[in-house]
Write a protein that binds this DNA or RNA. Structure first.
Lengths: 151, 151
DNA sequence: GGAATTTACTTGAGAAACTTACTTAAGTTT
DNA sequence: AAACTTAAGTAAGTTTCTCAAGTAAATTCC
C-alpha cells in the first residue's frame, strides 16, 4: 500500500473545517485567535515573527497584540537582547482560552472516535507518530530564541 | 496501543495551521474562500444552509455570495421546489480556485512526505481510510437535497 | 566614531468584512 | 384568508485589516 497524498490532503481539509468553526465565545477574530494559538503553543515571539506566521501585515499584528493585551491575554515585555524589539508572552488567561478551545475539539473528536471500529482506532493510533513527524517537518518547534544559521 | 485523542487533536491543529496560511492569490477573504470550498465540495446550497456551516450571519452570506457572483465564481439559481429560496452553484472558475489551492497543498505535503521513512508513510496510508471515516461521521456528504429525518 | 541605512514597532486614515435591525416576498397554519 | 414563519436582500454602523508615514534602536561603512 502506498500513500495517496491527494486523499490525505482532502481528509485534512475536512478536519480543518471541523477545527475552525467552533463558537468563538471570547469575541476574538479568527486571526486574533490564531496569534494567541501561536504564542500559546510556540512560546513568546516578537511582532515580526508573528507577522511571518500569520500572513497579515505587521501593522495588523500591532493592533491585534494591543487588543489581546487590553483583554489581559498577552503581555508585552522588552527583549533584553534587542532594544527595538518586544516579546509577546501569553498570560495564563490567554493560554486558558486556547486550552478551552482544544478541550472542546477533544470532546467532539472523542465522541466521533468512539463510533469507529477497534481496528480503525488502532490504525489511527499507529499512524499518529508519523503524522506528528510530518507536521514537525513543516514547522520545527522553535526554542525561545533561535540562533541564526551559521553563515 | 490505544488511540490518544488529545495527541490527535494537537496534530490536527497543526495541520490546520499549515492548511490555512496559503497566499490567497485571488484576494478573497478567509470566509469567502470557505463558502466557495463548501460549494465546491458539497454541491449547490441555499444561503440558509451556508449560514449554518460558516458561522456568520445570514446577511454576511448574502454579501459574500454577491461578491463571489460578481467575480464569476458562483451562480444564483432559483430553487425549483421553493420560490423563496435560491441555490448557489459553483461555476467552473469557482471550482478551479479551490482546486488550485488544493494542488498547492498537495505539492507541499508531497515534499514533506518524501522525507518520512517508508514505514511512516505506510502507517499513514494504513490509517487513511479510518481518518476519512472519522471525518465523514462529523459531516456526512450531503446529496443535492437531503430528506428530513423520519420522525 | 559618527552619518547613513536598516530593522522593529507605532500611528492615522481609509477600505473591506461583518453585525444588527429592518424590509420584502413566498410558504405554512388554522 | 388572516396570522405567522421562513428565505433572502438592504442600510447603517462597528470591527478588522491595509497602506503610508513616523519614531527609535541597532548596524554598516567610510
Amino acid at each position: 500500500m502506498t500513500l495517496r497524498i491527494t486523499e490525505l490532503t482532502r481528509v485534512l481539509e475536512e478536519f480543518t473545517r471541523m477545527s475552525i468553526r467552533l463558537p468563538a465565545a471570547q469575541r476574538l477574530s479568527f486571526t486574533t485567535l490564531s496569534v494567541l494559538h501561536t504564542l500559546s503553543t510556540r512560546g513568546p515571539k516578537r511582532l515580526t515573527e508573528l507577522t511571518a506566521t500569520e500572513q497579515v501585515t505587521q501593522s495588523a499584528i500591532t493592533q491585534i497584540v494591543t487588543k489581546l493585551e487590553r483583554e489581559g491575554l498577552v503581555r508585552r515585555e522588552p527583549d533584553p537582547t534587542d532594544g527595538r524589539a518586544i516579546l509577546v508572552h501569553p498570560t495564563p488567561a490567554g493560554t486558558a482560552v486556547i486550552d478551552g478551545r482544544r478541550d472542546e475539539r477533544i470532546r467532539r473528536l472523542t465522541a466521533l472516535a468512539e463510533r469507529l471500529t477497534p481496528a480503525e482506532q488502532e490504525a489511527i493510533a499507529a499512524a499518529l507518530p508519523a503524522l506528528a513527524h510530518l507536521v514537525e517537518l513543516s514547522a520545527p518547534p522553535t526554542t525561545h530564541r533561535s540562533a541564526p544559521p551559521a553563515p
